[in-house]
Design a protein around this nucleic acid. Structure first.
Lengths: 196, 196
DNA sequence: ATGTATAATGAACGAGTGTTCCACTTGAAA
DNA sequence: TTTCAAGTGGAACACTCGTTCATTATACAT
């Protein structure tokens, strides 16, 4: 063996994630990254291999953190739907000021990446968004089990509905960030047609 | 006087728009543009000034075309809401294969541009999206006049609701492009809570 | 036919891109 | 204390970026 006391990898990924999240894949240069994670190219490339690879690790870290936040919301509320609602409130309102961007990093990535130029990263982002959707479906099935939602509904349909509302709302909130309007919209999501 | 038989400016803007729409602002290089509009840098810079300026013209052209499409949909249907629904169907399903991207170019731009690095273009895009929203509000007010919608609803609220649904659905359709699901979703938009 | 103002061309500029390479440093094993 | 594989720093590479500008081509007025 030899030396192994390097930088804190988790911390580097966290910082890289925030930069990619803010500026997007194309808007972030390796020199931007080098500066914000305070590492020289040699170290970054030894640890992550390429800009693409670092991005992949970043977006996975993002999805992971978001998943943990969702679980936290479910744990501190009394029902699946209440947890879901708290989660939406957190990402659209409460965590807004500290977040690098108003929008979901996965959605931003899906929006800017193309099949022609960045197929691999795009597919990664799509897979992660699908992961979120099936997590939503699980939660909704829990809600059907407890009777919070009528059990003759289709969980996948509702999960999809949730997904569209959140994507739409977060993007919309970049143009109109009136907090009361956003809050009202969140309330309306849960009395929307698919739930009846 | 002297020479004035130049290239067709409208045609150049159209081609530039499609490229920006597909690849985004950062993903499109001036050399990409030079190739697709078949002009040398000198001509482009004489006519448009800069990459930013050309983008501004492109996104305005896009908003204009979309506005015309919406009007067309209203003209060939029997009610404001039917027109709106046809419009949504067109942009999400019918025009899909010919379009450079599944998503709305304005939304893509709002998603990728930042206040720090591209404030001017971002503000332009936001203004255009707000323009769409007030157009929606006008249409909804028409629908209230004809009794298609209860007139104790708030037109701005409904316009905002439409906006969020369209943004969410178009983005979502990039991950799941099952046509029957998209169609079902469009139907559901118009029986959604805000309409009752 | 000639002169002239304007448009189009494309080489070139400096700065920035992702990435590589190698000399240097480090710290655990011997 | 010596050894040496692994980690780090930073100059440099080949290329691309947005943009400029001197040159050449063009078409109208005379």
């Amino acid at each position: 063996m030899s030396k192994n006391a390097k930088f804190d990898r988790a911390e580097v990924v966290e910082k890289a994630t925030n930069l990619y999240w803010e500026k997007g894949y194309h808007g972030t240069s390796m020199r931007d990254l080098q500066a914000t994670v305070d590492l020289r190219p040699g170290s970054i490339y030894a640890a992550f291999g390429s800009k693409d690879n670092l991005f992949k690790e970043a977006i996975n870290h993002y999805a992971n953190s978001t998943g943990k936040l969702l679980q936290l919301c479910l744990d501190e509320t009394s029902s699946p739907l209440a947890g879901l609602k708290l989660f939406i409130r957190k990402i659209t309102i409460e965590n807004r000021e500290n977040a690098p961007s108003d929008m979901c990093m996965i959605v931003k990535s899906i929006s800017e990446l193309t099949d022609n130029d960045n197929k691999e990263l795009l597919d990664e982002a799509k897979a992660l968004l699908n992961g979120v959707e099936s997590r939503f479906a699980d939660i909704i099935e829990d809600a059907m089990q407890t009777g919070e939602i009528s059990s003759n509904k289709n969980a996948m349909d509702l999960a999809r509905y949730m997904q569209v509302q959140i994507i739409g709302l977060r993007t919309y909130s970049r143009v109109n960030d009136d907090q009361t309007i956003i809050e009202k919209f969140i309330d309306d999501i849960f009395v929307g047609a698919p739930f009846h």
